[in-house]
Design a protein around this nucleic acid. Structure first.
Lengths: 143, 143
DNA sequence: TCCCGTCTTGCAATATTGTTGCATGAGGTG
DNA sequence: CACCTCATGCAACAATATTGCAAGACGGGA
């Protein structure tokens, strides 16, 4: 997803140590153009690194808390993780294929919500708006 | 949420038997103005009915599959369930409070997405668009 | 009425996903 | 070196959901 982000820099600006494990996690997520579940990430990493499953969960939680990653939800029960919006990444919606379970990022322009009016009238504090389109992807439609 | 829906009728039009358990589940969801998790529903039901937790899960799955209920996701790991859009219920967005975990329905007009352009250009099939606003609700802000 | 098939439900076991407690080890600082 | 902090591993646990199998309900037809 990102040739623009310097993960080490991202971590440092959040006052986090740029440990090898954290960089590995960011590289896996950043090099995939779609959000991944914790299990996905762990499975990729364990092939090449001696990393513990719990460590992956802890890193994901930490990075979400520091707004480096964002947690997304499918209709299913696993959480998915993607790079959080930053200067290189505009907030964008996601598409979830009900048949194959694949989650994809949509281009920021294609789908957005007009939340200005909402923000003015809503009595609470708004942190983010998550938009997810569910359906069947073109690959699954072909079959 | 609904004085207009005849649950028994809803089930019959989906060719499903209107069993007591299914009606109970629908009544619990329909009489709450916010989506509920499977556990929420089970806890309400077990106070008055002899119903099994697994039965609740199965009924929820069945009703989602038949588009009587819709499954919603919070940032957390539990799925939430609400009545699916139908002639009495316009599709609407939801608000999830990060502090108290409460999920609320928003009025259909306050927040909607312009998906016409998207529908024309997207190469897959679109079943629904889920919009969730995350933040802190007004009750939590007061504290 | 009795048998048979289908559907719903309960129960136990299991799976998946995520969390907690505690110990170890690395690396820096006085 | 003694001490501190932080990241990590490991085992146990917790929460949420699913599966397999058996029992029960209920209707249709012999």
């Amino acid at each position: 997803m990102c040739q623009h982000c310097n993960y080490s820099q991202l971590l440092k600006s959040a006052s986090l140590e740029a440990t090898a494990n954290r960089l590995h996690v960011l590289e896996v997520i950043g090099s995939c153009n779609c959000p991944l579940s914790a299990t996905d990430i762990y499975k990729v990493l364990e092939r090449t690194e001696a990393i513990n499953r719990v460590t992956v969960y802890r890193i994901l939680d930490l990075l979400v808390e520091h707004h480096i990653l964002e947690r997304l939800s499918t209709g299913g029960r696993a959480a998915y993780y993607g790079l959080a919006p930053n200067e290189h990444h505009a907030p964008h919606a996601h598409f979830y294929c009900r048949r194959c379970g694949q989650m994809d990022c949509l281009h920021p322009e294609t789908l957005s919500v007009d939340s200005e009016l909402f923000k003015k009238t809503f009595p609470g504090e708004i942190a983010r708006v998550e938009i997810r389109v569910d359906g069947i992807c073109k690959n699954c439609l072909r079959q």
